[in-house]
Design a protein around this nucleic acid. Structure first.
Lengths: 267, 267
DNA sequence: CAGTGGTCTAGACCACAAC
DNA sequence: TTGTGGTCTAGACCACTGA
């Protein structure tokens, strides 16, 4: 048998996708691969490492060996719409009972703002801004958690110094609406990224699982100009969570529509 | 100097984040790391490999060495709302000019449906269903592209056999609305995943870039029951794209709201 | 204790592109 | 031609945990 690490990995990948190796099944050990393919130990090891990086396999320490990873079958869908109860606004009923993770604390500091958040706030990248960082999650399911960074626009802090307080309680959206005397317009932008080691460890992410990132902006009109008063940067496991929205119909797409003059498969 | 691969990587990571090493700058070569840290070549190599996996560094072949990766600064935000022009429905003005990638073709086949799509359609996983696969993108920007799989519910195919045709033109949403005699309700669920090697190569994804996945369902009411007539599974680079929605206010969150009885920092 | 993967050293050869 | 990273072989030692 010939064999490079990538070839061996492709072979095992194939067997997993065909269902020949099922979640929980033990993969061949390094020694077995060395014998089967006539390769060095490092090469066999590299093949298994590739599958782990892809999130297809995981290691059970000690005598457990490498097994096909059991992927979570039920992803938690977080429907995104603003709701409100006696406590104030919240986004999505499924996280209403979430709490700050025990052993962690909400931190309020002033830090240079990263470029992407700065662009949304309309300030220069690196400007020192008030940021409130915390990690919260489901008290009963250890891995259902998220990191949240809340960046405040300097004009909002100036008008509402209470927002920069280190209190864990916020009611921040009510304060902003009282100040602006109008409803906030919320937008969410969703993307994904490879977690930094710190994020992976805080969110208990296994290798190969990306970060799902939801960036929410709260916009009000001040002096006839739109102002992004806050940017809320939420990161969570892309394997455990998804976010959902209902699409609105705009312009000519409002029902009832006029017939299209030609057929076109939309993108 | 002591040094393990992870320590060396952490050191370089730190220098990148501090801005001491900027995008495009050359990282130390393996030989330099060997000398500086007194480690073996493989160890130095592993440190650089870690940074590449994280998407922080990339290799410039030949004499180029390993450099700090230039991350795209401007991500294309795709605002999600249904629009309509003379051709029919489309979602988001920014992709109106996209076309099928030259050299690729739309494929219409019947295949066993994967579990997550099956759950949305309300059929058993593995049921053979009609699926239309294609890759389209911006004719002018090579890497602005996406993969789209459109899975049809068997009841929709039965009522509208034309949907299973291999024509590249669809007008699929108009056909479904004509059949159901009512507007489609569209929902989108967003998540992310590590790309398979096939997806990475089709979408030209560098190592360390996750897949952003948008799953759109088209729901109509047939015989007084909701029917998901189609599931549209869209995959794109999480580094180049993000998707955006405006949050709706539901229930008690409709403006004007009543004051909250207590302050609570929403999640 | 024995079997598992993880990591390091040491050295060889290869592919690639800038010089 | 030469410097760059990529991959393979070969062998050593470590940490972990189930038997």
């Amino acid at each position: 048998m010939a064999g490079t690490a990538e070839e061996i990995a492709a072979n095992l990948r194939e067997r997993i996708h065909r269902g020949e190796l099922r979640p929980g099944d033990k993969l061949p050990t390094m020694d077995q691969l060395v014998e089967q393919y006539g390769v060095a130990r490092q090469t066999a090891r590299q093949a298994l490492a590739l599958l782990k990086q892809e999130g297809l396999a995981e290691y059970r320490a000690g005598r457990g060996g490498t097994i096909v990873r059991e992927k979570p079958t039920t992803r938690m869908v977080r429907s995104r719409a603003m709701e409100r109860d006696h406590m104030g606004y919240y986004s999505g009923a499924s996280v209403q009972h979430w709490r700050v993770i025990p052993g962690t604390q909400t931190e309020v500091t002033t830090e240079p703002v990263p470029a992407d958040v700065a662009a949304l706030l309309g300030v220069d990248a690196g400007t020192p801004l008030v940021v409130r960082r915390r990690m919260n999650g489901d008290p009963d399911i250890e891995r259902h958690r998220q990191l949240t960074d809340s960046w405040l626009h300097p004009a909002a802090v100036e008008a509402l110094p209470v927002l920069a307080g280190s209190s864990g309680l916020g009611g921040i959206y009510d304060r902003i609406e009282e100040w602006a005397e109008q409803p906030i317009v919320w937008n969410e932008e969703i993307t994904a990224a490879t977690p930094s080691p710190a994020e992976a460890s805080a969110l208990l992410l296994p290798p190969g699982v990306p970060l799902l990132r939801v960036i929410r902006t709260s916009t009000v009109t001040i002096d006839r100009k739109p102002l992004v008063a806050e940017v809320n940067d939420i990161r969570m496991s892309a394997e455990l969570f998804s976010v959902a929205y209902q699409l609105s119909r705009r312009g000519a797409a409002r029902w009832p529509v006029r017939p299209a003059s030609e057929n076109f498969y939309e993108s």
